[in-house]
Write a protein that binds this DNA or RNA. Structure first.
Length: 924
RNA sequence: GCGGGUGUGGUGAAAUUGGUAGACACGCCAGACUUAGGAUCUGGUGCCGCAAGGUAUGGGGGUUCGAGUCCCUCCACCCGCACCA
């Protein structure tokens, strides 16, 4: 019987669906294991061969865990809100809900062909009202919470109101407005609107006016991580700063816990680094400098700077403040007024993009000075865009001998440089060392900079001109979009007061719309629906939530997907707990992963779940790149020249569809028919063959290098496809797709099949006992495969299977008792063929419910070993020795070996090193 | 610039702890069965050499009886961040 994979795979995929084979219950009697894939955005392009890599790995791991007796949660869903569906709707007039559902159907059909063991009963779609009802509900929890810095937890707004009414806010610094202070009696005298505006400055989800990243082309605001080098991540459109009323998440309050939490999870070093760099914690001091100015407005004012190097305070040669700094107008002197206003105007005219692109040194002197509190020296205050308004205090003390940017600025404007680090400074380049002994530094003279840091900090605090200060680079996350295809906010505006809707009125459903043009005043499309906007005597919020809203908590919904009363019951989340293993790409390092970590912490703080890190272990699968093929057209002609000859011509390279190329050889007839342009193509060949050029690049439609998994599955079957993707190399590594190598894996599967079936004789499995040699092969394989699977080394596990099949074939082993066990351990990798053979052997039920074989060490015990014998570290011969051999015995045997005697060249051995079970080395 | 990672045959890659470098495959070469093969099977295949042997894990140096693995140094490539004081 032939291995007919097409009918076998179809048969079992249907059977699994019919029998609900992969449905999983919340069963506290069994140990749980939660394996999660990052759910996809269902794009119109469908899956290419790179997407399933992580899914296959997680599928193998899930099946393996299930066989090992765990109750495994392995769900899949769709991150179905987002920009592309909306753009598609604008371009093609198809409602996002419709195109999204079509795309999802397509995704599911592609996934099902690969034989994944998802429990589709638990599927979630972020754009379904039953799902986003709870996204909105969680938003209301964020809205109704503030962060208590003392206990480092989120608490309810009620509690804050109570504190305010008793003692005002002196003990609870306002995160939204550092200068806001009021007493209990102030609070009690505020009217409702005033109180609400104060509370808004504390809420974890809050509305504020701020500079946002505005993208004109997309007609929306983007989060910082959606802006790359001043252009939008999606589409590459220019992004400028714009002031708009926006919703935000106060993620900055969680900076410390997000940082600390990294210590408790198993992510890769680079992932942890990316996150902690993004959070960007730094230690330093805020120091007040007395301003000395001719401008009366500056009288008695201080300039507050932030520095991480208070030890260099005697090296300060100038101050720099951001052009947006509030003191700019107050410290500008009459003489400098024109220059300053010109400069500020110039800075405002520059877009974010320009600022990033050309980093030229620019700035202007304000005309005023600061006084160094320790030596009374007057320090000029400059204004320059290299200091950012949004970080620290928006003002710095510049120490050119120690800071590169300060040094360049000083050079550019001829500001004299004070050297406080002696020989460490050569006058040509700043030296940011911390190892120098300080000079010209008053009371810090002679101290090592690292020591001086503490001394200076203490002194600064002692005389009351500043304090220690920790800063974070991370900003609050913009949480609203002027778009249609996202979750509506459960908020109604009554005047300037944002009123949350009650839980009973959720979900706030997205009203159907066909024409998605933007509303007036840069508002989203929803603003065009007056009937919807008017609601209960107020006006609905017309922004929608960003793409990351739904994905910040979906892993919780899978635990209890049909619950109509709660986002997820506490019982379910207590049982399933953290995601044990989370698999996905690195592109979500600072977006999705950080937001879901924050949401989890808030839900934990408010008592809805029992853990505060969502993902215990994170594995980042590599990207599979495309292997493009290129043809070379002789410029201005219809002639195409083969790659080996192209240098003799002036050519233009053109990407050609990889399906028209076998290896590097072009199918010339196919090429002519591919596009009308090429109909009359002529070829300059090498011996009748047209060879294409090759290039590794992203797998993408526009390079015509996309390989669709469906095609591979049709040609080789899902089992081969799954194993080949794993065999390609380590899951975490990027690698190019190469269809050629798949033959080897396919051969392996066919060879495996032949252990059971002979083309002529049919079933060849027998019921006689397997011999010890076969068992040894089997258990050796079991050991390797199990260890490799457990440590996510799937490529070596596949090779373990190959070795097993090769050796069992050589041993002519067809014993049922052994092959049945083999089926069980291969099932995670190649589920269809194993299910088929399992039933062919007469078993009832699924191989997934079989028992995972237990390693029997007795078959692996060796009594002797082939020892390599080296002379001075170079292996010369291999000899077989009993494992019980002692040092003396080994020495005697080795020294009698003719080859060893030859290599000793008559010299006496100095030492013989014998490492049991490893090797022997004779030292001369 | 800062942080992280990777460099091993013609190719994808192996080598948990320092112990026979290149497992397992692809490709290639030779052969068998074949009208034929892009099916299947057998053998070979890092490089130099007829061989004995030599030589090889990006380059250089070190530690060690022994280094792909540990240390120092330099180089190349990839990813992330980037005026964050």
């Amino acid at each position: 019987m032939e291995y007919g994979f097409r009918s076998i795979e179809k048969k079992w995929q249907d059977a699994w669906k019919q029998n609900n084979s992969y449905s999983v219950k919340n069963d506290p009697s069994k140990p749980k294991y939660y394996v999660l894939d990052m759910f996809p955005y269902p794009s119109g392009a469908g899956l290419h061969v790179g997407h399933p890599l992580g899914y296959i790995a997680s599928d193998i791991f899930s099946r393996y865990k299930r066989l090992k007796g765990f109750n495994v949660l392995h769900p899949m869903g769709f991150d179905s809100f987002g920009l592309p569906a909306e753009q598609y709707a604008i371009e093609h007039g198809i409602a996002p809900a419709i195109s999204t559902n079509q795309n999802i159907e397509n995704f599911i059909s592609q996934l099902d062909k690969i034989g994944f063991c998802y429990d589709w009963n638990r599927e979630v779609r972020t754009s379904n009202p039953d799902y986003y009802k709870w996204t909105q509900w969680i938003f209301l929890q964020l809205f109704d919470a503030w962060f208590d810095r003392k206990s480092q937890t989120a608490k309810r707004i009620d509690e804050l109101v109570l504190i305010f009414s008793k003692e005002g806010n002196p003990s609870i610094a306002c995160p939204g407005d550092k200068k806001l202070f009021f007493s209990a009696s102030d609070w009690n005298s505020f009217n409702e609107a005033d109180k609400e505006s104060v509370l808004m400055k504390y809420r974890l989800a809050f509305c504020g006016v701020g500079e946002v990243n505005w993208c004109e082309a997309l007609g929306t605001v983007l989060a910082n991580d959606e802006v790359i080098n001043g252009v939008s991540e999606r589409g590459g459109h220019p992004v400028v700063k714009k002031k708009l009323r926006q919703w935000y998440l106060r993620i900055t309050e969680y900076a410390e816990r997000l940082l600390a939490g990294l210590e408790t999870v198993d992510y890769s070093e680079s992932m942890k680094d990316m996150q902690s760099n993004w959070i960007g914690k730094s230690f330093g001091a805020e120091i007040d400098f007395e301003i000395n100015s001719e401008n009366e407005l500056a009288l008695g004012k201080n300039l507050k700077v932030y520095t991480t190097r208070p030890d260099t305070i005697f090296g300060v040669d100038f101050m720099v403040i951001a052009p947006e700094h509030e003191l700019v107008s107050q410290i500008t002197t009459e003489v400098q007024a024109d220059a300053v206003s010109q400069y500020v105007e110039y800075v405002n005219s520059r877009s974010e993009r320009e600022r990033m692109a050309e980093k030229k040194i620019s700035g202007v002197f304000s005309g005023s000075y600061c006084k160094n509190p320790f030596n009374g020296v007057l320090i000029p205050i400059w204004i320059s865009e290299y200091v950012l308004a949004g970080y620290g205090t928006g003002a710095i003390m510049a120490v050119p001998c120690g800071d590169e940017r300060d040094f360049k600025f000083a050079q550019h404007f001829d500001i004299p440089v004070t050297n406080i680090i002696g020989d460490f400074f050569d006058g040509k380049e700043a030296n940011p060392t911390k190892e120098a002994r300080l000079e010209n530094s008053g009371f810090l003279d002679g101290l090592l900079m690292t020591e001086a840091m503490v001394v200076a900090l203490n002194k600064i605090e002692e005389i009351g001109i500043g304090k220690r200060q920790t800063n974070y680079r991370m900003r609050d996350a913009a949480f609203s979009r002027q778009r249609y295809w996202g979750e509506p906010f459960p908020i109604v505006w009554k005047g300037d007061v944002a009123e949350p809707l009650s839980e009973a009125s959720l979900p706030v459903e997205l009203p159907p719309m066909t024409d998605l043009k933007p509303g007036p005043d840069a508002q989203g499309p929803l603003a065009n629906l007056p009937d919807w906007v008017q609601y209960e005597g107020g006006i609905r919020e017309v922004n929608t939530m960003p793409g990351y809203a739904g994905s910040s908590w979906y892993f919780l919904r899978y635990m209890d997907p049909k619950n109509e009363h709660e986002f997820c019951s506490r019982e379910a989340s207590d049982y399933w707990g953290q995601v044990d293993i989370y698999i996905g790409g690195t592109e979500h390092a600072v977006g999705h992963l950080l937001y879901s970590r924050m949401w989890t912490k808030v839900m934990f703080d408010l008592g809805y779940i029992g853990f505060d890190e969502p993902f215990k272990r994170l594995v980042n699968q590599g990207k599979i790149g495309g292997d493009s093929r290129l043809v070379y057209r002789v410029r201005g002609t219809k002639q195409f020249v083969s790659a080996g000859l192209k240098d003799a011509y002036e050519t233009d390279e053109i990407h050609v569809d990889v399906s028209l190329v076998d290896g590097f050889e072009l199918n010339m007839e196919g090429f002519k028919k591919w596009k009308p342009d090429f109909l009359g193509a002529e070829f300059i060949t090498e011996d009748g063959v047209y060879k294409c050029g090759g290039r590794l690049e992203k797998m993408s439609k526009r390079y015509f290098n996309v390989v669709n998994p469906d095609d591979i599955v049709v040609k080789y079957g899902a089992d081969t496809f799954r194993m080949y993707e794993m065999f390609l190399g380590p899951v975490e590594q990027d690698k190019p797709w190469d269809t050629k190598g798949i033959e080897g894996v396919h051969r392996f599967i066919k060879k495996f099949w032949r252990l059971f079936f002979d083309v002529e004789k049919g079933l060849v499995v027998n019921t006689s006992a397997a011999d010890a040699a076969s068992w040894k092969v089997f258990y050796k394989m079991l050991k390797k495969v199990e260890e490799d699977t457990a440590r996510f080394s799937f490529n070596t596990a596949v090779s373990g299977f190959m070795i097993g099949v090769n050796e069992l074939t050589d041993l002519n082993c067809h014993a049922k008792e052994l092959l049945e066990k083999f089926l069980v351990i291969l099932t995670p990798y190649a589920p269809h063929i194993c299910e088929e053979l399992w039933s062919q052997l007469g078993n009832v039920g699924s191989v997934l419910d079989a028992e995972y074989p237990v390693l029997e060490e007795k078959y692996l015990i060796e009594t002797s070993k082939e020892y390599p014998v080296a002379v001075n570290g170079k292996t010369r011969i291999v000899i077989n020795l009993e494992l019980s051999a002692t040092q003396e015995e080994v020495e005697a045997i080795v020294l009698k070996e003719p080859m060893i005697i030859k290599w000793l060249e008559g010299k006496p051995p100095k030492k013989i090193i014998f490492i049991k079970n490893k090797m022997i080395n004779v030292v001369v």
